[in-house]
C-alpha cells in the first residue's frame, strides 16, 4: 500500500509529465493512422499503375510516401510537447 502510494505520488498520470506524454502519444497515434489511411489508396493505385507500366515505379514510390509528411509533423509536435 505504502509503496504503491509513493509511486503514484512520484509520477501521477494526470500530472504535468503524464499529460505531456499522453499528448505526444495522441499526436503520434493520430498522425500515424492518418498517413496510413492516405497511403493505403495511393499505394494500391501505384501498384496498379506499376503492374501495367514498370517505368512508373519512381513516380509511384514518391507519391506513395508523400503522406508520410503527416506523421513527421506528428513526430515534431510530439518532440516539442515532451521536451
Amino acid at each position: 500500500m505504502v509503496e504503491a502510494a509513493t509511486v503514484a505520488a512520484a509520477a501521477p498520470i494526470f500530472g504535468d509529465a503524464g499529460l505531456k506524454a499522453l499528448g505526444a502519444a495522441i499526436a503520434i497515434a493520430g498522425t500515424g493512422i492518418a498517413s496510413a489511411w492516405a497511403e493505403k489508396d495511393i499505394g494500391s493505385a501505384a501498384i496498379g499503375a506499376m503492374a501495367e507500366n514498370e517505368a512508373l515505379f519512381g513516380k509511384g514510390l514518391i507519391l506513395t510516401v508523400i503522406p508520410e509528411t503527416i506523421v513527421i509533423f506528428g513526430l515534431v509536435v510530439a518532440l516539442l510537447v515532451s521536451s
Binding site: 495511393i42 493505385a45 501498384i47 496498379g48 499503375a49 501495367e52
Partner: peptide, 16 residues
C-alpha cells in the same frame, strides 16, 4: 472493391 488499384490499372491500360 479496391477501386484505387483497379481504376489506376485500367487507366494505365487505356493509355496503351
Amino acid at each position: 472493391s479496391n477501386y484505387a488499384y483497379a481504376v489506376t490499372r485500367v487507366r494505365a491500360m487505356k493509355s496503351n
